[in-house]
Design a protein around this nucleic acid. Structure first.
Lengths: 164, 164
DNA sequence: GTAATTGCAAATACTTTGCCACGTA
DNA sequence: TACGTGGCAAAGTATTTGCAATTAC
């Protein structure tokens, strides 16, 4: 393995899962079934999912949860996958395909997701932190939480009917 | 209980734990030992800590973890406490004393914290989301992750000595 | 052949609920 | 007294490790 290789740049990152696979093979990963399937599934759906959810993908159902867990850790270390906290009990993972990782608006009622454009200022602050404060490898995580319109309606209805 | 009372405004929020206690009593909380001690401890250290860590405070050591857990949930519901994900397995809680909740720069190596000023643009975006998209009660969570200068040094030393 | 990967089983950690005793208003 | 609160025990869920069998190179 070559732990000093850097993660695929965003130009490579736009390539499909095969580009990432090549990068990983370069780093010493073996071209195993689990790896190939997981990358394919994660490339097919760029949104964050829990380990259990990824394991439910058809091509991954025969894989044990432990395997996915360890594989995901390695992918995270390799900089190919990121971990996101979306307020669920379990953490979510998503493939980093398109350069800068997206931020999300999360419905605390139904768990629905909506992608949000990262405010440029956050990126600037991130760069400044890295340059000015001596912190290394700075990344950010930004989530907005709220109740989506459709859940809000239902909730109003509930409040009325229950006279809360 | 009066679930419709709103959380203490930031003008009240600057008051010590006693102001918050009054607010909670108003909402139907009972002035119990656990509540008083927890508020005091949380007011004494405004930084986020896990349930276990709060439970380690001298005045709370005889309290059961379950009690703290349920109390914390109630405080969160009452809007007096917020929950933060700092990348640890356990979630952290902190008292909301000073109006807008602070954001953090977290060291992924030693777990150290440094407070970061929230970019105004994030607040603006938050407000816009609430006004323009129909989402209710929007809040945000923003964390920066990296390796703090002192951990970076140690890590360099390790790399050199281990010849990695 | 060698070293990474895999799966089973089990340990660990954190969260959550049920039930009854207790304390506060 | 009435109802919120406290604690014990236990269940539920997620994460993590050990070890032996397997697989890719």
């Amino acid at each position: 393995m070559n732990p000093n290789a850097s993660a695929p740049s965003s130009s490579q990152a736009h390539a499909p899962a095969s580009g990432i696979l090549a990068f990983l093979l370069d780093r010493g990963f073996k071209r195993t079934h689990a790896l190939v399937c997981l990358l394919r599934e994660m490339a097919a759906d760029p949104h964050p999912r829990t380990l259990a959810e990824w394991g439910d993908c058809p091509s991954l159902q025969e894989r044990s949860g432990v395997t996915l867990y360890r594989l995901m850790l390695k992918l995270e270390q390799a900089g190919v996958v990121r971990r996101v906290n979306l307020g669920e009990r379990a953490q979510c993972f998503q493939l980093l395909l398109t350069g800068p990782a997206p931020d999300y608006l999360v419905c605390t009622s139904c768990g629905g997701l909506e992608q949000v454009e990262t405010p440029p200022e956050v990126r600037v602050l991130e760069d400044n932190l890295a340059r000015k404060t001596g912190w290394k490898t700075v990344r950010h995580e930004l989530e907005f939480f709220g109740v989506c319109p459709s859940c809000a309606e239902n909730s109003d209805a509930t409040v009325q009917s229950m006279n809360l």
